[in-house]
Amino acid sequence: MLDDWKSGDFSHVDKDHNYFWENQGGTVGKAYGLQTLPGEIELIKQNSLKNKPNGLFFI
């Protein structure tokens, strides 16, 4: 896992996340796949807009 990350390979980061999540008794936050770049940008925008009173967002 760490060798993959060190080389920039995050293609199974969802499975890596769930490995730790399960071993620590996780009940909320299980990963079901990887986020796409457009999906990630939209998520950041939505969460940033909630915290910005003027609605400004820069990416």
Rank of each mutant, 00 (worst) to 15 (best):
49 L>I: 14
11 S>F: 04
17 H>K: 04
41 I>A: 10
40 E>R: 08
50 K>H: 01
35 Q>E: 13
15 K>P: 01
30 K>Y: 08
48 S>F: 08
19 Y>E: 10
57 F>T: 11
45 K>F: 13
50 K>C: 01
31 A>I: 03
26 G>Y: 03
25 G>F: 03
3 D>R: 14
21 W>R: 02
50 K>I: 07
32 Y>T: 15
38 P>T: 01
11 S>C: 07
27 T>V: 14
27 T>H: 11
29 G>V: 03
4 D>R: 15
31 A>H: 02
18 N>G: 01
25 G>Y: 00
15 K>W: 00
26 G>T: 02
59 I>L: 15
1 M>F: 13
57 F>S: 06
50 K>R: 13
47 N>T: 12
2 L>R: 13
17 H>F: 07
2 L>C: 06
1 M>R: 09
58 F>T: 13
14 D>H: 03
9 D>P: 01
24 Q>T: 15
30 K>V: 13
18 N>E: 04
59 I>E: 11
6 K>E: 11
54 N>P: 00
34 L>I: 09
17 H>N: 01
59 I>F: 15
10 F>G: 08
48 S>R: 07
19 Y>V: 09
51 N>A: 15
15 K>T: 11
6 K>I: 10
38 P>S: 01
47 N>Q: 15
34 L>C: 04
39 G>D: 05
39 G>T: 00
25 G>K: 04
30 K>H: 12
54 N>D: 15
56 L>Y: 11
52 K>A: 14
49 L>H: 09
53 P>A: 10
23 N>L: 13
10 F>L: 14
20 F>D: 08
47 N>G: 05
1 M>N: 07
53 P>N: 07
3 D>C: 06
21 W>N: 02
2 L>K: 11
35 Q>R: 11
32 Y>I: 11
29 G>M: 00
30 K>G: 00
26 G>N: 03
3 D>Q: 12
21 W>V: 02
22 E>F: 06
51 N>I: 06
54 N>Q: 09
58 F>C: 10
27 T>P: 02
57 F>E: 05
23 N>T: 12
11 S>P: 04
8 G>V: 00
52 K>R: 14
47 N>I: 04
59 I>W: 10
34 L>S: 04
56 L>C: 06
4 D>Y: 09
